[in-house]
């Protein structure tokens, strides 16, 4: 596919590295879903239940993709791929929102979803090539003990609005606030989103992309890195690391 080049739109975006970025090592990922669970806990994501999940209304800001290749006896797995919002530098979800609920944060260089603006047109989700946005179909109830684990730093979303991965922006704010009160810069590895913190294999690495010395930008520059749908020109901030060969897969 030819690379989309609209000079007036792209010129100022192409050279930006982004601020926050993530590297996901697919050779280390075991597909254990710890990140999915951690994400749901951290971000007050509702549990939709069996019926709604059957209709494809599951709420997951982060999901593990897993593909199979070949006919039945000789099935090969493709490895696991955690897919989350790629926080595109040139996001397709942003220009289509009629109420400016999906806006680009200039300060953090993230794709934001402003919940109180969102009216639920779902245009952004239809325009997202990564299917990273999920729509909150109902006010799912949280029975008594479950309501005690809600994270007070994150909005409890009501029905009828779109939601998506925020790169745990509440933690970014907390870390930046802490660093500022101590009069220093944010250290590399100090900021960890819930998924990276929960990953037992340390396959998810988070950090600053504008700092060439940070662990994530060093990893992203190795030859193993690739991005999802790079040719669409969305400038994703998530890099997937994978060798040509599959290691330790059932063959």
């Amino acid at each position: 596919m030819a690379k989309h080049n609209i000079p007036e739109v792209k010129a100022d975006l192409e050279n930006t590295t982004g601020i926050w970025g993530m590297a996901i090592d697919q050779d280390l990922c075991t597909g254990c879903q710890a990140c999915v669970a951690a994400c749901a806990m951290e971000n007050n994501i509702a549990f939709v239940g069996e019926t709604d999940a059957g209709y494809g209304r599951s709420l997951h800001w982060l999901r593990i993709e897993h593909a199979f290749e070949g006919e039945f006896p000789e099935v090969q797995t493709s490895g696991f791929q955690p897919v989350l919002c790629q926080q595109c530098g040139n996001a397709p979800c942003e220009p289509v929102c009629p109420v400016f609920a999906s806006v680009h944060s200039q300060a953090q260089d993230l794709n934001l979803q402003v919940y109180n603006r969102c009216v639920g047109t779902r245009y952004c989700a239809n325009n997202c090539p990564y299917v990273a946005r999920v729509f909150n179909m109902r006010d799912y109830d949280r029975p008594e003990p479950l309501s005690n684990q809600l994270n007070p730093d994150v909005t409890v979303r009501r029905r009828g609005i779109m939601e998506k991965c925020t790169f745990c922006i509440q933690r970014i704010h907390k870390v930046e606030d802490q660093a500022k009160s101590e009069g220093r810069e944010v250290l590399d590895g100090e900021m960890q989103p819930a998924c990276a913190q929960a990953c037992p294999a340390d396959a998810i690495i988070f950090g600053r992309l504008d700092d060439p010395e940070s662990r994530v930008s060093k990893l992203a520059k190795t030859g193993r890195g690739s991005q999802l749908f790079e040719d669409l020109g969305t400038l994703p901030r998530v890099t997937y690391l994978k060798e040509e060969k599959d290691y330790g897969r059932l063959g």
């Binding site: 806006v103 944060s105 200039q106 300060a107 953090q108 993230l110 934001l112 402003v114 919940y115 109180n116 994150v154 909005t155 925020t166 922006i169 509440q170 704010h173």
Partner: peptide, 12 residues
Amino acid sequence: RTKLLDCGTCHY
């Protein structure tokens, strides 16, 4: 100014 007028500073 960028930081203080950003939606993501207060809404998340």
